[in-house]
Each structure stands twice: as C-alpha cells, then as structure tokens.
Design a protein around this nucleic acid. Structure first.
Lengths: 235, 235
DNA sequence: AGCGGAAGGTGACACTGTCAAGCCGTGCGT
DNA sequence: ACGCACGGCTTGACAGTGTCACCTTCCGCT
C-alpha cells in the first residue's frame, strides 16, 4: 500500500488532462476506504485514516467529497449496484418464479455476508441519508425493483392474489434482510451453533419458498384470506 | 423494567449505605443516557454529554462504568429484559400456538419501533460485544428462548416436523427482525409508502402465520420435505 | 484519632471531523 | 508572451470525543 501511496504522490504532475487525474485520486480514496472497512470494519473508518492510507494529506479527500457522509454514500452506492446486479443475475438463472425468489434470497444474504461493511452501510440512515444522495437512492430503488418484480411473478404464478403484493414483498424482504442481519450481527450464529450455519441460509430460503408454494392449495380452495386465518380464528 | 436491569447489575459493589448512594448516581447516569438516545438518537450518545446531562463532571460515570461500552451494555440490558417480558406476555395472551407466534412477532416489532435506540443497541456487536457482558447475554438468551419455545409449540401442533425447528426458528426470527430493521432504517416505509404502514406489521405477521398454517395440509399429505420442494424441482 | 478507600473532580493526550488559509503549477484570456 | 485565476493539494487550527493519571474530599471502621 505504501507503493500505492508513493505512486499517488508522484502523479501529482502527470501529463494527463486534469479531469482524469482528479478521478484517479478520487478512485484512490474510494479504494482505500473500501479496503479499510473490509479489513478493519466499518467503525474504524475515519476520514483521516482513509487519507493516510491513500498517501494524501488529511484534507485531500475533502476536495472530492463534501464530508464524511459523502464517502460513505459512495460506498453504499457500490453496494446497491452490486446487490441489484446479483439479484438480476439470480433471477435470470432460474426458470420458475419460486425458484427465482429462492435464488434472489440466497443472493441477498450472500452479498450481505461477503460484503458486511457495505451491507451495513446501505441500511444505516444515520450514516448515509438517502435523501441527500438521490443517485444512491436510485441504485437502491433498482435493487428493490428486482425483489418486487420477483414477488409479483410468484403471485401471478398462482401462489396468492395480486392485492397481497405489498405484504408478501415486505414479508420476503424481511426474511432475507432479517436473516442477513442476524447472521452479520452474531446472535443467530451464536444461538444455533456454528455447525449447521453453512447450510442455514439455503435451508431458510427453501423453507420460505416451500411455505409460499404450499399456499397454492389454500388459494385454490377459495381461502383467499388465508393469511388472516390465524388471527381471526383464535381471537 | 429499569428495576430489572439494575437488579441484574447489582452484583459487583454493594456495601449497603455507600452502595445506595452509588446506585443512585449510577441510575442517574443511565437515565440521562436513556433520555439522550431517545431524544437525540443513538449516534449522539457520548460519554461526556451523558455526564453533562447528569450534572456531573465528565469523568464521574467512569467510576461506575469501565468504559463507554459498559453504558451501552447496560442500556442493551434494559432492552433485552423488556423484550423478554413483552414476548412472555404476548405468549400468555393467546391460546393457540399460531396465535402466540403472531403475537410474539407483533410484540417484537413493537418493541423495536417504540424503543429504536435500545433495539439497535441490542444487535450491534461492534457497540456492545455480548461476550464481554455475560449477564446481558443471559437476558438476550432469555428473550430468544421465548421465541424458540413458541416455534416449538407450533411444530408440535402439527404445522411441521420437529427436525425443522432450527430452520423455522431462524425463519420466523428473520421475519420479525428483518421487518423491524427495514421499518427502523427507513427503506420499507420509503418504498411502500407511509399510507398502509400502520397496518403493515400485523398484516405481515398474519401472513407469516397463515403460511405456516397452510403447511399443515402439506404435512398431512405426507410431503414432509415440502420446504425443499421448490429447489429440488427446478434445478 | 487516624487511616483506608470510595466518590468524584481536574488536567492532559491522542484522535476525530471540519473550517480557513496557503502553496504551486497548469491552462486560459488578453 | 505574460499574468492571473483556479484546481489539486497541503498545512494549521478548533472544538469535541474517549481515556489515562493524578488529585481532593469525606465517610466509616478499627
């Protein structure tokens, strides 16, 4: 990394055009930040430490990012883009709606586990306020659309009625998001033991799809309000 | 509720007369911290600010808490105790296993929404490492046991086979945890609109129970591995 | 009476994010 | 061709933070 630092210092007088040099240092800062959160964790991320690792003065990044939050937003950007791409890919890789839902779920959790800092960043509004970064919000929306489209397909395939789309979307998103969060933040692994953890994610995803699939019978029997059955009957 | 948390921590020091005064200031510090995170949010919590609000010097709390993390752990303690209590209460309030599961889910999300800072604290290992605070971990475990026991009841009632307990537990926990996280951290409300948000939580919980309930038919038909159906068939 | 030790205070240090200037070389207008 | 403005980057400063070391005060016990 020191080699990088030296190189970055020497390219101050690069013969290239101004703009590209600027983008180069900007990229350098982002890469330093990314490596930092991947090795040291999200909490260790400091503006000054990033500058240090990039071989710059503590104020250089300030030229490209208005404040600390902007760096975080740029990283969250990467995360959302990656998520959207993985979800698209997962959907393409499977033929049936339910299998696509399953693949999307696995992809979602996979991303969270393989890029924990990015994932946390994406869902920490106190660190990155999406309102202040419309392009990041757009990437987030793109990822969300993949999920929602998948759920819609599932409903259209007969595993439910269209009006339930928002609720089923929320449910499926909650499953994958919650599983990712519980695995990332420890308690689940801690409680259920590390033994079967490798299999846990696909098993949960399979069960989720199995439950949704089993629903088809209920719908066909005309029990379209099956979702409210438990509450209605026991109260 | 607070009394529970304090009681658990009353182990270390307690030479009576002295101890009571000490506990008083200790409690003062905790209350100041609690009010701070409830009004200003979790990120605004600083050791010095807490001391200021408690009317003490910036170093006084250091006498009762070894470091910042210990304050956070004490607050997480409150949260876990509250959660366990709400879950127990939810279980008692309903007669059938599925209805209990539904009530537990609602209670879980309710706690997260009504005490957001506490909830975040409980699941942020970088802020509170449960390994360093065994009593807090015990409270967390107590809450988890409630959830697991509820799931076990559901299985015993015929909505699945016993071997699936870990997976179903993970699934249900993921649903409630994920829903809480998505609501707290914004994206869900942002995407699905604030309109039906008030109804969203109970609807999702009802759907979750409805799905699990619908499973009974599948099990009775002998399709005990229904959960893996989607994956097996489409691959 | 005297002392130990707990409750609490003061000052310092390294670190953070951010603001305000400064330096320097390139590209532009004239 | 020259000057100058400006982009890229640096340096210096400030308030705020968590934490360490040391200090004062004062209660309760022997």
């Amino acid at each position: 990394m020191q080699a990088v630092a030296v190189k970055s210092k020497s390219n101050a007088l690069a013969p290239l055009s101004r703009g590209s040099a600027a983008q180069a240092t900007r990229q350098l800062v982002l890469e330093a930040a990314e490596e930092l959160i991947r090795t040291e964790g999200l909490e260790a991320l400091s503006f000054r430490e990033v500058s240090r690792r990039a071989g710059l003065s503590h104020q250089a990044p300030y030229h490209y990012f208005p404040d600390r939050e902007a760096i975080l937003a740029a990283l969250a950007n990467q995360g959302f883009a990656l998520l959207a791409e993985k979800l698209r890919e997962a959907r393409r890789s499977r033929p049936t709606p339910l299998a696509r839902l399953e693949a999307c779920g696995n992809a979602y959790v996979d991303l969270a586990l393989s890029r924990p800092a990015h994932f946390k960043l994406m869902f920490r509004p106190e660190m990155v306020k999406l309102d202040d970064f419309p392009d990041t919000a757009a990437f987030a929306d793109s990822a969300f659309q993949e999920l929602q489209a998948t759920v819609r397909e599932v409903l259209e395939a007969g595993h439910g009625v269209p009006e339930e789309e928002p609720v089923l979307t929320a449910l499926c998103w909650s499953v994958v998001h919650g599983l990712a969060g519980l695995l990332l933040d420890g308690p689940l692994l801690y409680k259920l033991g590390r033994s079967g953890s490798g299999q846990l994610v696909p098993l949960v995803m399979a069960m989720m799809c199995g439950l949704v699939e089993g629903r088809t019978a209920g719908v066909r029997r005309g029990r379209t309000k099956g979702a409210r059955g438990a509450a209605a009957r026991t109260r």
